[in-house]
């Protein structure tokens, strides 16, 4: 396995992967339920107002969810952590649904109220899960996951109730299954600041995340203020997840699968893990969304279904492997 990655190979991998992401994004613009010639496509609304924002949004969501996963796995020292599994996504969806029901035009501090509300409820969710899983000051990976799954189910129920009460049954489908079918440029603009902020924060703290590989106490003896950065980083992961959820509903397992595979390929050094996971998340989401809108064309499969079909078995495999290894 090519674990011996250094500055030079790391940079090369980054550039190549970046080119691949752009290429896949470009190709996916020409695939869809409406097949038209490239020349005509460039003149059509379909490209500029439907496909391009959708592909861009898929890429941005992939980046945010993958980085959230890297952050959560690092700071919680839990290889099974992921915004979806921990209930952050479902918690965020409640806030987003409430904000939408109240009227999406509400603007708080110049930002759309939807991601802000989603952030508040996703933070509440992760806080509840974290506190529930804490027994005598310690959290075991399994308890954390169980608490997350239970809270997710609870949040999904509340979410459905809110949607039924506000009378828009069609949107339950959107929220619970996760979909990019209504992607617009305004969605893209909404999430860009969160993606930029989240990536910068994650990379900014890569040194601390590396020190945490040795455990919380050892990280402290290496000069890391674990208490403070834990709060800040969990908040950042929740913020990115909330922004993602508020435009796409629940899309799971990206934050679980990507960091795992990339760790196998480049090792656990966050200097490489973060940027390469970010690009791989983009690649996965763009590819999955292209499949979602073409494979059963003209019917569209919500991307959340595809991710869960792949992600849930992978999650079970990881859980099982931990049991076998007795970790």
């Amino acid at each position: 396995m090519a674990k011996k990655i250094n500055k030079k190979t790391g940079f090369a991998v980054f550039i190549i992967l970046f080119a691949v992401v752009l290429a896949v994004m470009f190709v996916s613009l020409f695939l869809g339920s409406v097949m038209i010639s490239p020349a005509e496509l460039f003149k059509s609304e379909i490209l500029w107002q439907i496909r391009l924002p959708r592909v861009s949004l898929a890429a941005l969501l992939g980046l945010m969810l993958a980085i959230s996963g890297v952050i959560l796995q690092g700071i919680l020292r839990n290889p099974l952590a992921d915004p979806y599994v921990l209930g952050i996504s479902a918690g965020g969806a409640i806030g987003a649904a409430v904000a939408l029901a109240a009227g999406a035009q509400v603007v708080i501090l110049g930002m759309s109220s939807v991601p802000v509300m989603a952030f508040v409820t996703s933070l509440a969710a992760v806080f509840i899960v974290y506190k529930l899983a804490q027994v005598a000051g310690k959290t075991s990976p399994e308890t954390l996951i169980l608490a997350g799954v239970a809270l997710s189910a609870f949040c999904a129920a509340i979410l459905s109730l809110i949607i039924i009460l506000t009378g828009n049954l069609q949107s339950i489908y959107f929220w619970l299954l996760g979909s990019l079918s209504s992607a617009t440029w305004s969605n893209v603009l909404t999430v860009i600041p969160y993606a930029v902020f989240g990536s910068a924060v994650a990379y900014f703290f890569s040194k601390e995340l590396n020190a945490l590989l040795l455990g919380e106490e050892m990280a402290q003896t290496l000069g890391v203020d674990v208490e403070r950065i834990r709060l800040f980083l969990i908040g950042t992961a929740s913020l990115m997840t909330a922004a993602a959820v508020s435009v796409s509903g629940l899309i799971g397992f990206v934050g679980l699968i990507i960091p795992h595979f990339i760790r196998l390929l480049v090792g656990p050094n966050h200097r490489y893990l973060i940027p390469i996971s970010a690009l791989s998340g983009m690649l996965l989401m763009v590819a999955a969304d292209t499949i979602a809108r073409t494979v059963l064309s003209p019917t569209e499969i919500p991307i959340g279904i595809i991710m869960s079909l792949v992600g849930a078995p992978f999650f079970l495999y990881l859980l099982r492997r931990r049991r076998v290894e007795g970790k």
């Binding site: 674990k3 011996k4 040194k207 601390e208 590396n210 020190a211 590989l213 040795l214 990280a219 290496l222 000069g223 890391v224 760790r263 196998l264 090792g267 656990p268 050094n269």
Partner: peptide
């Protein structure tokens, strides 16, 4: 996933 050298490098964190 860390080699000996990688692990010793963590000592440079501060």
């Amino acid at each position: 996933g860390f080699s000996v050298e990688d692990l010793v490098m963590l000592g440079r964190t501060p």
